[in-house]
């Protein structure tokens, strides 16, 4: 999914695009209709853009709207392209580059959270250590036997990654992560800028 296409700009663009790469969080409000996710991710694969993380769910049932959150990497020019390419898909209502929005408002980053379910199998000292560390990370136990725990952890991506790495020597056997969901800080919302008739 994140194969790099160095020729993404044009066949004539032979310069190295590796430098000047940035990671941005995009929030996309779309009609919740069949195929809409395929349109969005097909655009990324077809044009050689990167998807580092993706999450999607219906967020406004009454209007049949879903919100897709995508973390992507590229030069500022490519990220601007991605935003415009997404915006011209017919079922896309609004695309916001939350990273740009956050910077504009003087924040370092938008609010970003990820949820992970982490299964750890073990006995004795390892098991106790896993539980102690889980408490330190404010992870909760949502399932357990005498041989395993399943922890639920919410936080920034690097916190989740760190927790998983720490659990690895303690008997980590399975992980599921949601991908990032994100919102802008402050009282404004994407809806404010969307068409009033939605």
């Amino acid at each position: 999914m994140n194969a790099k296409n160095v020729d993404a700009l044009s066949a004539y663009f032979l310069e190295d695009l590796e430098n000047n790469q940035e990671t941005h969080t995009l929030s996309i409000v779309v009609d919740n209709e069949p195929g809409v996710l395929a349109r969005v991710i097909g655009l990324f694969s077809g044009r050689g853009y990167n998807i580092d993380a993706l999450s999607v769910s219906e967020t406004e049932q009454r209007h049949h709207l879903s919100r897709i959150t995508i973390i992507t990497t590229g030069t500022p020019q490519i990220i601007e392209q991605i935003r415009h390419q997404l915006d011209r898909l017919v079922p896309v209502h609004k695309v916001t580059d939350l990273t740009v929005e956050a910077r504009r408002k003087g924040h370092e980053k938008p609010l970003e959270r990820e949820l992970a379910l982490v299964k750890v199998r073990g006995q004795g000292e390892n098991r106790l250590e896993a539980l102690r560390l889980a408490e330190a990370f404010k992870a909760t136990v949502i399932d357990a036997t005498t041989e395993h725990f399943v922890f639920e952890l919410t936080g920034r991506t690097n916190k989740v990654t760190q927790f998983i790495e720490i659990m690895r020597p303690l008997g980590l056997i399975e992980v599921a992560r949601t991908g990032v969901v994100a919102l802008c800080r402050g009282s404004a919302s994407m809806r404010d800028e969307m068409a009033a008739d939605i």
Binding site: F13, H84, R88
Partner: peptide, 8 residues
């Protein structure tokens, strides 16, 4: 088409 602008 805004996506044509600054594409290349």
């Amino acid at each position: 088409d805004p996506s044509s602008i600054n594409k290349i």
